[in-house]
Simulated scan of single mutants.
Amino acid sequence: MKDFTRELSYKTSRSSGAGGQNVNKVETSVTVLWNVQESGFFNEFQKNLIQEKLRNRINAEGFLFLTVSESRTQLANKNKATDKILEIVNKALVVPKKRLATKPSKAQKQKRLDTKKKLSDKKENRKFKY
């Protein structure tokens, strides 16, 4: 898991929703920002992969952003936001293996044909014979 937390920047704002006085007074919501193209931590291939897979989360200026307002404290939200953005980016870097086309073995083909024959015989025996 790659840790690029040095390149992250944070913005705080007031959380929305229930919470009473705490929500009205304290900026507990945390938005984490990361400029994908300016990153010195990843190579060009990795940056392009991140931009392709996370294009819905990257704004016009090229910043990947994520807002967290789950907790009542700013520090807890900052930690959760950092963990989530690291997880999202590391998942985006995974390149799935290419599927290799395989052929069924002779035994598998024979088993399939035997099963078909048994089913056919079973249905044939159901018919009324004069």
Rank of each mutant, 00 (worst) to 15 (best):
K53L: 01
L113D: 11
T102N: 13
A101M: 07
K118Q: 08
V95Q: 04
I50C: 00
L86W: 01
N22H: 08
G19A: 03
E124K: 05
A81T: 06
F4M: 09
Q51P: 01
R14Y: 05
A92F: 05
T12N: 12
K123D: 11
D83K: 12
T31D: 09
R6W: 09
K109V: 07
A92M: 05
L86F: 00
K106C: 04
T31G: 15
K53H: 06
T73I: 08
S71N: 14
K109T: 07
K78S: 10
G17D: 02
S13V: 14
Q46R: 05
E27A: 15
K118P: 00
S69M: 06
K103I: 14
L8Q: 04
K25I: 06
G40R: 10
Y10F: 14
L49S: 02
P96W: 01
S16M: 11
K103D: 13
V23H: 00
A81N: 07
A18N: 09
L93R: 01
G62C: 05
K47G: 00
N59R: 05
V32Q: 05
N48K: 00
V32W: 01
N59M: 10
D121Q: 12
L8C: 10
A60H: 14
K122W: 06
S71Q: 12
S29I: 02
K97S: 15
F45Q: 12
V26F: 01
Q74K: 13
L75N: 12
S39G: 03
L86P: 01
Q108V: 09
N90E: 01
Q108C: 09
R14S: 08
L8R: 03
L100G: 12
L54I: 07
T28Y: 02
V94L: 10
L86E: 01
L66Y: 03
T12F: 09
T5H: 11
V32T: 04
A107N: 13
N90D: 00
S105D: 07
